[in-house]
């Protein structure tokens, strides 16, 4: 079996004991509010959101443009900070971390996938995948190439390892982005419209890859506009005007809103 695990990473204790902050879920958003100051006054992007996500869940976040989807996942990745409330991810109270601590934490625990892939144009496909390991100093340097190649093998991009991103297609770039997100073996994958820029066939392939990762125990939070894709995720959280208006598990089961 491929050893994709980072060289040292705290694992939350399984079972009822929970995490240091008393949360028993991998992702625990408590009364999260986020407001932006705009020329027109204060704009509330999230209003007292509570959300619980367990390990191994595949959550699709849906909603109209401007509803607060991206803000919500930015809370999970630590890209943005809440105006009020708590963001607890495993053992970490993310909202309390400094920028420097946040970067290290994010690199090790969260894999982010963007709509426009965002591969560094001057690095080869392989180097792009190695970069998170390089920044977070996970894995011995000699093992990084091996691991990156294995990840590329997983996303069927190994043949393109030495190409620059510009020499690959959109679908291929998104697969590389997924491999990059997996580089440090994070618990959580956060994807913002990962298929938004792909044709339906490629989007389907990417979705299948996500599904496989969930099967392997990863937790995925995916923002999407694609209702069909959202339905195929294990759980769908719908946001409107900064509020979670529905949280549905596949088969009709209500998700854990933590309320």
């Amino acid at each position: 079996m491929l050893k994709l695990r980072a060289k040292s990473r705290p694992r939350p204790p399984a079972g009822a004991g929970g995490y240091h902050h008393g949360n028993t879920h991998l992702i625990d958003l408590r009364s999260v509010t986020k407001s932006y100051q705009t020329a027109a006054g204060e704009f509330p992007a999230l209003r007292q959101i509570d959300l619980l996500v367990d390990r191994g869940e595949f959550v699709a976040v849906v909603g109209k443009s401007g509803s607060g989807k991206s803000t919500l996942i930015n809370m999970v990745t630590g890209i943005d900070r809440p105006t009020a409330g708590q963001v607890l991810i495993g053992d970490t109270a993310v909202h309390t971390l400094s920028e420097g601590q946040m970067a290290v934490w994010r690199g090790k625990h969260v894999g982010v996938i963007f709509q426009f892939f965002q591969l560094l144009p001057t690095l080869t496909v392989l180097e792009n995948v190695m970069l998170p390991m390089d920044f977070c100093n996970t894995y011995p340097s000699r093992a990084r190439v091996q691991r990156a190649m294995a990840l590329l093998e997983e996303v069927a991009m190994v043949e393109h390892a030495d190409k620059l991103p510009s020499a690959t297609s959109g679908g291929q770039q998104q697969r590389v982005a997924i491999a990059r997100a997996l580089a440090n073996d994070p618990d959580i994958i956060v994807a913002d419209e990962p298929t938004g820029n792909l044709d339906s066939k490629t989007a389907d392939a990417v979705f299948q890859l996500f599904q496989r990762l969930v099967d392997e125990g990863k937790t995925i939070l995916m923002v999407t506009h694609d209702e069909e894709l959202a339905r195929r995720a294990g759980r769908t959280v719908t946001i409107a005007d900064g509020l979670i208006v529905s949280d549905t598990a596949r088969g009709g089961r209500n998700g854990e809103l933590g309320q």
């Binding site: 990745t77 890209i79 920028e99 420097g100 970067a103 290290v104 994010r106 690199g107 090790k108 894999g111 982010v112 963007f114 965002q118 591969l119 560094l120 144009p121 970069l131 998170p132 920044f135 977070c136 990059r180 997100a181 580089a183 440090n184």
Partner: peptide
């Protein structure tokens, strides 16, 4: 690119 690098774990100092 700086944003992406920060997203995948690069710190300010790096």
């Amino acid at each position: 690119q700086i944003g992406v690098m920060k997203t995948i774990g690069a710190g300010f100092g790096q």
